[in-house]
């Protein structure tokens, strides 16, 4: 295992060392100490390595991640795992706004709460939040799954495309074109897998599914006058 003191060695040195790791890297486990809220930690990795960050981070932690497992033993600032492609990012604490924004793949697990705009414009990422999420979450979410074990804030799934949203607790309000959907066996199966991957002991049956009413993004001939 390699230990890297961020205060002593600096962010650029860390990220370029992480970028140098390849598919068959021998240096598979990294420990980053003294993150002290720094921005852009472990951004842009493309290798099957494990990075353990021993404390809280600032903006964009684990952004654009491919393949790597990134664990944060603390809370994260805005934009964690933004545009993630694959791999897994696990946050022990809370996440600030737009967690997992625009993510194309992989799994983001937030063991605490996530604030506003969680999963905004998600494009295939799976996000599991053990706690609550804030307002405007999954805004324009295109594909992937957002699982919330607690409550969701205002305007959940506004202008939603084809992402699936599962909420165990209360939803303060639904956004435009987002509606409650029937939970079918394939959804329960999917949820069971996501919850188990996220080390969450909630039961799939306790969740409600929400999705797009598909009225907003399909052209409707009755609206032709509006254009």
């Amino acid at each position: 295992m390699l230990e890297f003191d961020l205060q002593e060695n600096g962010l650029r040195k860390l990220n370029s060392a992480l970028h140098d790791q390849k598919e068959n890297s021998n240096q598979t486990v990294w420990k980053v100490t003294n993150p002290k809220g720094s921005h852009s930690i472990a951004v842009g990795i493309d290798a099957p390595i494990e990075v353990n960050i021993e404390g809280s981070t600032g903006y964009y932690c684990g952004g654009m991640n491919k393949q790597a497992n990134i664990n944060v033993k603390g809370s994260v600032g805005p934009g964690v795992a933004e545009n993630m492609m694959s791999g897994k990012v696990v946050i022990d604490g809370d996440a600030s706004q737009y967690a997992g924004a625009t993510g194309h793949g992989g799994l983001l697990v937030i063991k605490g709460n996530a604030s506003s705009r969680c999963g905004i414009s998600m494009k295939g990422i799976n996000i599991v939040v053990h706690g609550n999420i804030g307002h405007m979450s999954a805004f324009m979410a295109q594909s992937g799954n957002l699982v919330v074990c607690g409550d969701a804030g205002d305007a959940l799934g506004d202008s939603l495309y084809e992402a699936k949203l599962f909420v165990r607790g209360k939803v303060k309000s639904l956004g435009a074109d987002c509606e409650k959907k029937e939970m079918r066996p394939e959804h329960l199966e999917l949820l069971e897998q996501l919850l188990s991957d996220a080390e969450c002991d909630a039961k799939p049956e306790e969740f409600t599914r929400y999705g797009s009413a598909r009225k907003l993004y399909n052209f409707n001939i009755d609206n032709s006058d509006a254009y």
């Binding site: 002290k36 809220g37 720094s38 404390g55 809280s56 903006y59 809370s75 600032g77 809370d94 600030s96």
Partner: peptide, 19 residues
């Protein structure tokens, strides 16, 4: 504005931190 502003406060590791 960011967590960075708080990191050198006494006993921040055990503080209740929230948004």
């Amino acid at each position: 504005s960011e967590y960075r502003a708080l990191v050198n406060l006494p006993e921040i590791e055990t503080a209740h931190v929230w948004e």
